[in-house]
């Protein structure tokens, strides 16, 4: 047995490379296609657009990486984002008459968004860990609840931020430092911190251990309940952060805000090499996954080669291909 494993180890060494390189190769290939199809692809404006629009899903997907690595799942993030955005706009609009169009209102709005994210994440987490309900069911339920709540808050229409406030808050999405816009900066910070936490802290290691085998983690005196709950809270907070960056973009929230974000985030996580059933996660892979998804849309918009009716099909094919490439590298061992 032990002699046989030497051999397996050696073989795996080579395949890990493929496993690691898979998503990066896909990203490079997409960038190559983009350059070939449109000379504006590499322009400052386009790159900024793609990165900034990736930020919302990206920030959420970083949190999703932890949840999935620990063996969980959260389907509610898209609706949660819409609900938090609605709540934030409503609070800010309510404060304008008393506080005027001031920085204070924005700060309170941000605090509301982050707090709401924390609470929403905690609700998901506690229902999963304390009540012992399947994550899929819990978050399917909260997904419907948040989506309805935002529709209700908006009376079926659109919640729009006070016009003056919008002008004041706008720079948070559109401005930046040294030509790098804020969403990109925040996304980068979240991604880097996420990568460090996942790879270099006890929390990240505990997530992987729980996802790999929850019983072993429990017998190894890992605080399973606490760690799992924390992954959902972390994700909720990151949804709050994403909303803080989203609201200044168009200053509105409606029932269609954040539609299907959960699926995009989950797809990005899986494309990035995190295992859907948990036990192994990598944040940098998730970032690559998010960029791949954004680039597909961007490239399709930049050309007329493919009928726009087929956009979804192309995304689907690329998602499946990316995952198949990686599985090829890992199943053989």
């Amino acid at each position: 047995m032990s002699t046989a494993s030497t051999n397996a180890g050696a073989r795996r060494g080579m395949k890990i490379d493929l496993h690691v390189l898979g998503p990066i190769l896909a990203l490079v290939a997409l960038i190559g296609i983009g350059i070939a199809l449109n000379s504006n692809f590499l322009s400052y404006g386009n790159i900024t657009n793609v990165l900034a629009r990736s930020a919302f899903i990206g920030i959420i997907a970083v949190g999703m990486t932890f949840v999935i690595t620990a063996g969980g799942l959260d389907l509610s993030v898209g609706s949660m984002a819409a609900f938090i955005a609605g709540l934030m706009i409503l609070c800010m609009n309510l404060l304008v008459p008393s506080m005027g169009q001031s920085l204070g209102v924005i700060l309170i709005g941000i605090a509301v968004a982050l707090a709401a994210g924390l609470v929403a994440g905690a609700i998901n987490g506690l229902l999963v860990t304390r009540a012992g309900i399947e994550a899929f069911i819990v978050t399917l339920g909260t997904m419907g609840i948040y989506r309805s709540l935002v529709t209700w808050l908006a009376d079926g229409g659109t919640l729009s931020l006070d016009y003056g406030m919008r002008e004041l808050y706008r720079p948070v999405y559109y401005d930046g430092i040294l030509g790098v816009s804020w969403p990109i900066i925040v996304f980068a910070i979240v991604a880097i911190l996420g990568e460090i936490v996942m790879r270099h802290t006890a929390f990240g290691r505990h997530c992987a251990a729980i996802g790999s085998n929850e019983t072993v983690a429990r017998y190894s005196t890992v605080a399973v309940t606490r760690v799992k709950t924390l992954t959902y809270i972390l994700l909720g907070c990151l949804v709050g952060v994403a909303v803080v960056m989203y609201v200044p973009r168009l200053g509105s929230a409606s029932a269609s805000t954040g539609l299907l974000w959960e699926l995009e985030a989950i797809a990005a996580v899986i494309i990035g090499g995190t295992v859907l059933k948990g036990g192994f996660g990598r944040v940098w892979g998730t970032v690559v996954g998010v960029l791949i998804l954004s680039l597909i849309g961007n490239i399709l918009n930049l050309t007329d080669m493919v009928s726009p009716y087929l956009n979804g099909a192309i995304q689907g094919v690329i998602i499946i291909l990316a995952v198949v490439l990686q599985r090829k590298g890992s199943t053989a061992t």
């Binding site: 504006n40 404006g45 386009n46 657009n49 629009r53 973009r249 918009n301 930049l302």
Partner: peptide, 11 residues
Amino acid sequence: AFTVMQDFLSR
């Protein structure tokens, strides 16, 4: 629409 328009503007 925001995303598509961004890309139209680049293109």
